[in-house]
């Protein structure tokens, strides 16, 4: 009998990265469906267009870098970035806005740093923040909740702008967070009772709920770990309830902070990015908690109504530092944290 000596690893799987990314993309589908239900075909068009652009650019840049194109495309990371961007950008964004966002995400934020695994910043959030600062007018037009636009009209807005569409007076509306930001001295109760807020809030709750469902699926499959999302949601809930307790007419409740804007999307799909977030468990807890606090602080005191992209980027740049001080104890050594 021959017993050959084989070195480890003894069980080798297929390219797991591609599968994981595919699962994450699948988990965004409930949210995509609900966003399409509430805000029209805008996000669907965004996602498809961004995916086409992202795959083209990814292939081109891998070609320029003289790497095997098919192998790197198969990790689906460009597709995931495109899907997240398409969901995050406002529905019916002009096509060039998508192009700039995808270009800065795929080329600048990812491949100039050496491709997947080396990017210190979340590519989708770099693309989002860049277009938010460069084109604030286009980026602050979110579709009316419950809008009813045909596919043809939606495509026309995306490619030719709003002025070419006949028979529609308007298709945009302030989001709940916009309304809270610009409410002035009006008390929150009166704001929530107003019909424009009611419809927007309902849509936002449903969409956030869908992201939470998708995220829980990823948690059950153990594709993402619970540390960062739980820390983020807890810190956001805590800080918002403190302010709510101090003045409930001025600051919205924690329920509203947790279920509007990009909170759930960020918690489960953005801050759990394994590349750009902190690595160790303790580090992830710090990372998530800090994002929750930053989101609240920027939403409440800054000039932007939504803060997820900025908070994630701010903590991305702090992640290597967090990792440096939260290294897990290696076997046989003293813990470096308590020393």
């Amino acid at each position: 009998m021959v017993l050959p000596q084989i070195t480890s690893p003894h069980i080798s799987g297929a390219n797991r990265t591609g599968q994981l990314m595919l699962w994450v993309i699948l988990a965004t589908l409930p949210a995509l469906a609900l966003q399409t239900y509430w805000y029209g075909y805008g996000n669907l068009i965004n996602v498809i267009l961004a995916a086409l652009m992202a795959i083209t650019m990814e292939a081109a840049i891998i070609r320029i870098r003289r790497r095997p194109v098919v192998f790197y495309l198969a990790d689906n990371s460009a597709l995931l970035t495109a899907v997240l961007l398409g969901l995050a950008l406002p529905p019916f964004s002009p096509w060039w806005l998508l192009l700039i966002a995808v270009l800065s995400a795929i080329v600048f934020a990812k491949h100039l740093y050496g491709g997947l695994g080396n990017n210190p910043f979340n590519p989708a959030m770099v693309g989002y923040a860049l277009v938010l600062i460069a084109f604030p007018v286009e980026m602050t037009r979110w579709a009316t909740a419950g809008i009813d636009l045909s596919m043809e009209d939606s495509l026309r807005i995306t490619f030719m702008g709003f002025s070419d569409v006949n028979g529609i007076d308007s298709w945009t509306h302030a989001t709940p967070l916009d309304l809270v930001k610009h409410k002035g001295a009006q008390p929150i109760d009166a704001l929530i009772a107003s019909p424009e807020m009611g419809q927007g809030l309902k849509a936002a709750y449903w969409v956030n709920f869908a992201y939470a469902i998708g995220g829980s699926m990823l948690l059950c499959l153990r594709i993402i770990s619970w540390h960062a999302p739980v820390a983020m949601l807890t810190s956001l809930a805590l800080i918002s309830s403190v302010f709510y307790w101090v003045d409930p007419q001025k600051y919205p409740s924690s329920l509203m902070h947790l279920l509007t804007g990009a909170t759930m999307m960020g918690a489960f799909f953005i801050i759990t990015d394994p590349v750009s977030s902190a690595t160790s468990r303790l580090g992830k807890l710090f990372y998530g908690a800090a994002i929750g606090i930053l989101v609240y602080v920027i939403r409440t005191f800054g000039s932007y109504p939504e803060a997820m992209a900025f908070s994630v980027l701010l903590m991305n740049l702090a992640a290597p530092f967090i990792d440096y001080y939260t290294r897990p104890r290696s076997y046989g050594h003293q813990s470096s944290w308590w020393r």
Binding site: P120, I133, V297, L314
Partner: peptide, 25 residues
């Protein structure tokens, strides 16, 4: 072509982008 200072400049740019979030506070 992006090794060293070049990528550091791009990184500084993205950091600056992130700090724009504090505008108006």
């Amino acid at each position: 072509p992006f090794k060293g200072p070049a990528i550091a400049m791009i990184t500084a740019g993205i950091m600056s982008l992130a700090f724009m979030g504090f505008t108006g506070m």
